[in-house]
Amino acid sequence: MDYIDLRSDTVTKPTEEMRKAMYNADVGDDVYGDDPTVNRLERMIADILEKEDAIFVPSGTFANQLALFTHCERGNEVILGDDTHIVQHEAGAASVIAGVQLRTIETDKGVLPPEKVLERIRKVEDIHFPKTGLICLENAHSNGRAIPLENFEKIRKIADDYNIPIHLDGARIFNASIALGVEPKEIAKYADSVSVCLSKGLCAPIGSLLVGSKEFIQDARKKRKIMGGGLRQAGIIAAAGIVALEKMRSRLVEDHENAKYLAKRLEEFGYINIVEQVDINMVFFRINKKFDENKFLDYLYKNGIKINPSEDGIFRFVTHYWIKRKDIDRVIELMKEFFEALE
């Protein structure tokens, strides 16, 4: 069965152009720096974000954890939002890999309050205190919100005052740039390092990139090796990433429009509430009706639709390249059939 898959934009399959590029990729040994396709991809993202250098890694979690591992010393403290991907969905890797302590702050729907960041910084040397080694931001946020750059500007000033680097989880930075109406470099300029995912809305099958200064990336190359990320003929997968950066960034606006259309259709039910601002390609909603969630998931699955279970009663549907308006209409139709059968 050809499923309509709304679980995430990570489910996207590579386009035909990507498959051809992968087949024809010119490759070498990336650990030696000899893979021309990887080198081209890294140069592309560094130029797009106006950073000095970049490194190709297997996944978004790998990129974020490599950033923490490179920026921080063991025992450092990292300040970040309590609802960020690094905290919620990276399996506690910061304590395992970088050996750092996460000091979280409650956000305002993803926005990190600058005054709270300032409060959390360890401002004095004390035998009892860890050192604040890093501040982490996220844009677009995991809740689907594009974070206003005024917020980043205030946090950047605080970070500079205390000589603390900033890492930006920019897995969906291109979605954020479209939602905010700015170039990606205008978001990236507030961070010392940025992670970018190629395998979500951009449709590449594998890979993320970490960008930063030449010195930072040089250090990250050794740390990548330690983490088991020293790839060899990686140009085969990097080739799809090049197509992603060249061809797939500009079309993300279509996914955003489809997400807004999906939210509008869901609101037709009357008992479904959209619980987060729809800035990018994610729709978060609550179904205010008594029903068996397992039966709901099973009904949709048997009719060719994949969704994730709710988290704390909140569902997330994600639009992407392979989701069209007719697919959304089909989902709404089946949801109506399921809930009408309960009455």
Rank of each mutant, 00 (worst) to 15 (best):
11 V>C: 06
246 E>D: 10
325 R>C: 06
315 F>Q: 06
291 F>A: 02
236 I>S: 01
73 E>K: 11
193 S>P: 09
258 N>V: 09
292 D>N: 14
94 A>Y: 08
101 Q>G: 14
73 E>F: 13
270 G>Y: 12
226 I>C: 04
25 A>G: 12
321 Y>M: 03
339 F>G: 00
108 D>I: 11
134 L>S: 00
3 Y>H: 03
287 I>Q: 02
76 N>Q: 00
225 K>S: 12
58 P>F: 03
260 K>D: 07
275 V>Y: 03
53 D>Q: 09
271 Y>D: 04
213 S>W: 07
191 A>E: 04
284 F>I: 00
320 H>D: 02
96 V>Y: 12
76 N>K: 09
107 T>L: 01
280 I>Y: 01
40 R>H: 15
224 R>A: 15
296 F>Q: 04
43 R>W: 14
274 I>H: 10
171 A>P: 09
217 I>S: 06
302 K>Q: 14
278 V>F: 02
244 A>D: 02
75 G>S: 02
175 N>G: 15
299 Y>C: 07
241 G>I: 11
283 V>N: 06
202 L>Y: 03
194 V>F: 03
203 C>W: 01
315 F>E: 04
260 K>V: 09
310 S>C: 02
290 K>D: 01
133 G>T: 07
146 A>Q: 03
304 G>A: 10
180 L>K: 11
11 V>G: 07
45 I>T: 09
283 V>G: 10
190 Y>V: 11
246 E>C: 10
128 H>W: 12
36 P>Y: 07
63 A>G: 08
33 G>K: 15
273 N>I: 13
291 F>L: 01
308 N>R: 13
227 M>C: 11
201 G>K: 01
323 I>R: 04
343 E>A: 09
170 G>V: 11
171 A>F: 12
113 P>W: 05
14 P>N: 05
267 E>K: 14
250 S>I: 06
305 I>L: 09
102 L>E: 00
229 G>V: 11
55 I>E: 01
218 Q>I: 13
116 K>V: 10
274 I>E: 00
304 G>E: 03
133 G>F: 02
281 N>R: 02
301 Y>E: 07
83 D>F: 03
206 I>A: 01
150 E>I: 04
109 K>E: 10
80 L>H: 12
94 A>M: 07
144 G>F: 00
167 H>M: 05
324 K>R: 15
190 Y>S: 06
169 D>R: 10
20 K>D: 05
148 P>K: 04
271 Y>Q: 01
340 E>Q: 12
114 P>L: 05
177 S>A: 15
55 I>Q: 01
81 G>M: 07
255 D>Q: 08
163 N>V: 12
284 F>D: 01
325 R>D: 10
180 L>S: 14
69 F>Q: 12
100 V>F: 07
56 F>V: 08
188 A>T: 04
78 V>W: 01
2 D>T: 13
232 R>C: 10
238 A>V: 04
293 E>R: 10
159 A>C: 08
283 V>R: 05
118 L>C: 12
